[in-house]
Design a protein around this nucleic acid. Sequence first.
DNA 1: CAATTGGTTAGCCATGTAGCTAACTATAGA
DNA 2: TCTATAGTTAGCTACATGGCTAACCAATTG
Lengths: 128, 128
Amino acid sequence: MANQLSQLDQVFSALADPTRRAIVMRLCAGEASVGELADPFDMALPSFIKHIRVLETSGLVLSEKSGRVRTCRLSPDALLGAEDWFQRQRAIWEARLDRFEAYVMKLKKEKERAAAKRPSRATKKKGS
Amino acid sequence: MANQLSQLDQVFSALADPTRRAIVMRLCAGEASVGELADPFDMALPSFIKHIRVLETSGLVLSEKSGRVRTCRLSPDALLGAEDWFQRQRAIWEARLDRFEAYVMKLKKEKERAAAKRPSRATKKKGS
DNA sequence: CAATTGGTTAGCCATGTAGCTAACTATAGA
DNA sequence: TCTATAGTTAGCTACATGGCTAACCAATTG
């Protein structure tokens, strides 16, 4: 039935469009009406409204209509959720780097220890 | 000619797909061959390779072929760039919240000061 | 009430994306 | 050298996306 996209799918795909990213950036600075948001863009209103709907269904933006004007504001949770994904990946990545560094260190120490025990082979200058 | 998408566009759009996000997560833990990466997925190889190419052109993944096996690894820069975007937006958002809070504080203080000057109006219990 | 403003719905079109199969190249191993 | 393995190319289909125009509410305003 309903396409069951994860929240992250929708958030990233929403942010993949420069128009929508610009809307989000604008809304970070405070809420605004659809017309105000649309103004800087050279685009027919219906096209623009589609972008807003994408942002809404992704959970990045909330809006409510009062009278004939709809006011949009950012919903920071979705944004934080996405930022969080990056932080988790970075944590894994950095842990790996640390392990790698530790591994290199261990190799180095072992080599040094081996060199200390029989100082002949590795440290020998050159000849047979 | 070439479609001139920004790096952010490509990175976010690459990460909008759960398969590609899984690949990135896998690569955070260390490099892997195309076959190893493809293994957990129930998908024809050519389809899978397309995902890898998307990740490569977005700059998230690097790969090189040696013999008949292509080894892929993460290129953290693109990932960091995207994470950075979130942090900048959050900074703007938080600055706004701070200003808003300061504004509320100012209102509160002014109200208190006014109340101190003529303690009649605001603090009066009820009647005319 | 009539006209304007702000937004919305419906529907069209071109392009992009995700998946597939079939057929191919090139290296590694027996 | 023959065969299996790892990946790649080509080409197809179905569906999603981003843009448009035209027509349509529904509040405000004159």
